[in-house]
Amino acid sequence: MSYEYIKFGKEEREFRQKIEEISGENIFSCYQCGKCSAGCMFSDKMDRTVNQQILRIQLGQKEKVLSANTHWVCASCLTCSVRCPRDIDVAAIMEAIREYTLREEPEKIKISELPKKVLEKLPNIALVANFRKKTG
């Protein structure tokens, strides 16, 4: 649906502030140049661009931010963060959206349901990293 009613109430402000608190970044530093999305090597698998996620956080659009897959596709390669002209740790904002979700529902990935074969064959570095990113 390409319509949004914009309001700046308590809910919007709290969502924005929580993301700012978790990431330690100033969301308003972003001036929407789009370089983060331009350099993101996973954008073909994202349903929303990285800069759009940031813009929506500025506007406090919690539902639309959380319903995107963008932050779950992000692999924390940090290319966006090192190239941001405003020195925003963009990847940290993606992490903050993940964390925001995980602090409510801690299991994005159900470890107990992973096949034993997967657990055995994968290097521990992959498992540790994945669980740290996808569980609360």
């Binding site: 390409s2 319509y3 949004e4 009613y5 914009i6 309001k7 929407q32 800069n51 759009q52 813009l55 929506r56």
Partner: peptide, 8 residues
């Protein structure tokens, strides 16, 4: 930037 019409 989000290709949405907005109202406020």
């Amino acid at each position: 930037l989000t290709s949405e019409t907005v109202e406020m």
